[in-house]
C-alpha cells in the first residue's frame, strides 16, 4: 500500500434497519491532504466519518488509517490510534458536566502527565485560536451554538492530532467567524501537516480549505477531484450541488424523499 495514503476506504457499506446509508463507498485520503466531503443532508457524511474513527462498525468493507485496519484493532491499539485523531462533532458534543477548559483539556488530562494548571494553559491557548478567550470557566450550557462548535474545535485540536475530522465546522457561524475557522484549518494543515476530512455544505469554505473535494451521493463517492476539477465538473449531480440549484437530477430525489 502506498505510504502516502493516510486513509483508505474500500467497499464500505452500512445500513440502519432497512435504510442503506453507505453502499460500497471507496475513498483515499493522502497524507497531509485536506479532503472535503460534500453531499446532501442525510446522505451519510457523518456516518462515513464515524466509520473511519471507529465509532460505527460497517456491514462490509475495509478501512485503513495510517496502514492499520481500523476494524481489526483491539481496544488498546484503537485507543492509541485515536490519540492521533481529533474530531469536531456536528453538534460539538461538549461534556455538559465539565467547564469549557475542562472540555478542551480532556484529552490532555487523560493522556498526558500535565498538571491541571498546565492543561488549563494549553486549553486557553487553543480557545484563543478559535477566537474564544476568557470563557474557560463557563459551562457548555452557557454557550451559544457557534461558541459550542468552536469549543468543540478547540477540543479536537488540543492534542495536536495527525488526522482531524471536521463535521460541518462553519455551520451556524457568522461569515467572519466562519472565515476565521477556515483560516485555522488551513493553517493547521500547512504548519502541522495535518491530514483532515471536512464535511461541509458551505462551498466557499470548501473551496478555501480543500485540497480535494469528494461528493457523496446515494451511498457512494460519485466524484473526487481538486477544487478546480470539481468546479469544472461535467457531472450534473455535482454541478447542481455546487451551484446550489434546485433544478437538476437531485431535485427528484429531494421531492421524492
Amino acid at each position: 500500500m502506498n505510504s502516502d495514503i493516510m486513509i483508505h476506504i474500500e467497499g464500505l457499506s452500512k445500513s440502519f434497519g432497512r435504510k442503506q446509508v453507505l453502499d460500497g463507498l471507496e475513498l483515499d485520503v493522502m497524507r497531509g491532504e485536506s479532503m472535503v466531503v460534500i453531499g446532501g443532508s442525510g446522505t451519510g457524511k457523518s456516518v462515513l466519518i464515524k466509520h473511519i474513527i471507529g465509532l460505527l462498525k460497517p456491514d462490509s468493507g475495509r478501512i485503513y488509517v495510517d496502514g492499520h485496519d481500523v476494524l481489526s484493532l483491539g481496544e488498546h491499539d484503537l485507543g492509541e490510534l485515536r490519540k492521533k485523531f481529533g474530531m469536531l462533532f456536528q453538534n460539538a458534543a461538549l461534556f455538559d458536566s465539565f467547564s469549557v477548559w475542562e472540555n478542551v483539556g480532556f484529552g490532555l488530562k487523560q493522556h498526558t502527565r500535565l498538571s491541571s494548571a498546565e492543561v488549563r494553559k494549553v486549553a486557553s491557548e487553543k480557545l484563543r485560536m478559535v477566537g474564544l478567550a476568557g470563557i474557560e470557566d463557563l459551562m457548555p450550557s452557557e454557550l451559544s451554538g457557534g461558541m459550542r462548535k468552536r469549543v468543540g474545535l478547540a477540543r479536537a485540536i488540543a492534542m495536536e492530532p495527525e488526522v482531524i475530522f471536521y463535521d460541518e465546522p462553519t455551520t451556524g457561524l457568522d461569515p467572519i467567524m466562519a472565515d476565521v475557522i477556515n483560516e485555522l484549518i488551513v493553517d493547521l494543515r500547512k504548519k502541522l501537516k495535518v491530514t483532515s476530512i471536512s464535511i461541509t455544505h458551505d462551498m466557499a469554505s470548501a473551496y478555501k480549505i480543500a485540497d480535494r473535494i469528494a461528493m457523496l451521493y446515494k451511498g457512494r463517492i460519485i466524484e473526487v477531484g481538486t477544487v478546480d476539477e470539481i468546479r469544472n465538473t461535467s457531472n450534473e449531480i455535482v454541478r447542481q450541488f455546487i451551484t446550489g440549484s434546485a433544478v437538476g437530477p437531485i431535485t427528484m430525489e429531494v421531492t421524492r424523499a
Binding site: E80, R82, G86, F89, N91, D96, Q110, H111
Partner: peptide, 15 residues
C-alpha cells in the same frame, strides 16, 4: 450523553 454524542466524543478522545 449518548444522544448528544458525548459518549462518541469520549471515544474519539481515546477514552
Amino acid at each position: 450523553m449518548r444522544v448528544t454524542e458525548q459518549i462518541d466524543a469520549l471515544e474519539t478522545l481515546a477514552t
